[in-house]
Amino acid sequence: MRDFGDLEAVIMDRVWDRDTEYTTVRDVFEQLCTERDIAYTTVMSTMDNLHRKGWLARERAGKAYRYWPTLTREEHSARRMLAALGSGGRSDLVFSYFVDRISAEESAGLRAALRRLSTERAPNVR
């Protein structure tokens, strides 16, 4: 999966922000046209591109398609973090620099997540 272009990122944000199971080109277009001058066909071709790249799944609904993301926003962010961790030199240093720059609240959340994962992965001991 390649990452997003500018308009793809805007559309993915709209898709992720929706509180429905799926969305349509019309739904996204109606949101975007209040903010920018954009053609329906541009939204349609961009969503088709996102489908071809594997970011959106779709099914036919009449003459149109229903779209939904193949990953959550958080899963996408985790993949980007893993890519940065793996391509930025020594991963231990990359991670150290990252942790050094996050807020105290983010650090506490990270520690809690690590504790939870550690507990989930630990073998059951009786």
Rank of each mutant, 00 (worst) to 15 (best):
V28L: 01
R79H: 09
V10Y: 02
F4V: 01
Y67W: 04
A108L: 15
F4L: 09
T119W: 13
R79P: 00
M1F: 00
W55P: 03
C33F: 06
D27C: 07
L50S: 07
A84M: 12
L7H: 00
I11N: 02
G109L: 08
V99D: 01
V94F: 10
A64D: 08
E105F: 00
R18S: 15
N124K: 08
D100T: 06
A9V: 02
L114C: 15
A83F: 03
A84H: 10
M12S: 05
I11T: 06
T41D: 13
L71T: 08
C33A: 07
H76W: 14
M1G: 06
M1Y: 00
D19A: 13
S107M: 13
D37W: 10
T72Y: 06
A61C: 10
D27V: 09
Y97I: 03
Q31G: 02
A112S: 12
A122R: 14
L50K: 05
R14E: 12
M47C: 05
A57D: 14
A61G: 07
S77A: 15
L93V: 13
L114W: 13
R36H: 11
K53D: 03
E74H: 10
I11Q: 04
S107T: 12
R14P: 00
V15L: 01
R18W: 04
V99P: 03
T23L: 02
D48W: 13
L32G: 07
K63I: 07
E120N: 13
A108V: 09
G54D: 08
R116E: 15
D17K: 13
E75Q: 15
M44S: 15
L50T: 05
R26N: 07
A9G: 11
R79L: 14
A108I: 07
E59V: 04
V125H: 08
Y65I: 02
T70E: 10
S91N: 06
I38W: 02
R126G: 06
R58G: 03
G89T: 06
L7M: 13
R126K: 03
S45E: 13
E74C: 07
A83S: 09
E105Y: 00
S103A: 04
D3V: 04
